[in-house]
Amino acid sequence: MGCFQSTSRKQFPGYEDPVQLSSQTAFSVSEVEALFELFKSISSSVIDDGLINKEELQLALFKNRKKENLFANRIFDLFDVKQKGVIDFGDFVRSLNVFHPNAPQEDKINFSFKLYDMDGTGYIERLEVKQMLIALLCESEMKLANETIEMILDKTFMEADVDQDGKIDKSEWHNFVARNPSLLKIMTLPYLRDITTTFPSFVFNSEVDEVAT
């Protein structure tokens, strides 16, 4: 099946065998191939080089490539596993795997910790959270006085920073998330269960003889 497509995948640096990617993730082979359809569409939206750059991810998230956003930048940096400034197909599948409904909760907690630990010190610091709150207010055009922001931070750190050293470590984050499970909602994408029906064209481009469901 799909022999006429067989050379096109060479245009995708970092392309990995769907069977292998499936064996390392919660995705079936068909789901990995459906994700490739999504990857092709995002990675060709600005520069057709088989890789996703920051502008392309922003465009996919906001339908507007000029809208620079701190959180989209964080997602990009975490998906750019090899820190090459671009996301290849293997990075894309492995990163999305954390968002699969069946992915281990532990992986979701660790990913969310890294998301908020912007400078990678191993702690979520008050200043980082304040920067993110300010970015959110800018993005959503919500208005809050500085003292209100400080009040929210006081309350949050009072609850999360158990040893009150001004920063949240990984174990404090685990406990905080356990008490506030809604914080992990963004870490699960129900869409990933239906990826083969969202991108049915994968069937025509499949390089696998028997498409597993």
Partner: peptide
């Protein structure tokens, strides 16, 4: 709009569009 101050900082942050990856799947 005024942000709901009863939410903790992370609840507020997680409402960002930049963290809403479901938009990747919307054609």
């Amino acid at each position: 709009p005024i942000a709901p101050v009863t939410m903790n900082a992370f609840e507020l942050i997680s409402t960002s569009q930049g963290l809403n990856l479901s938009s990747l799947f919307e054609k």
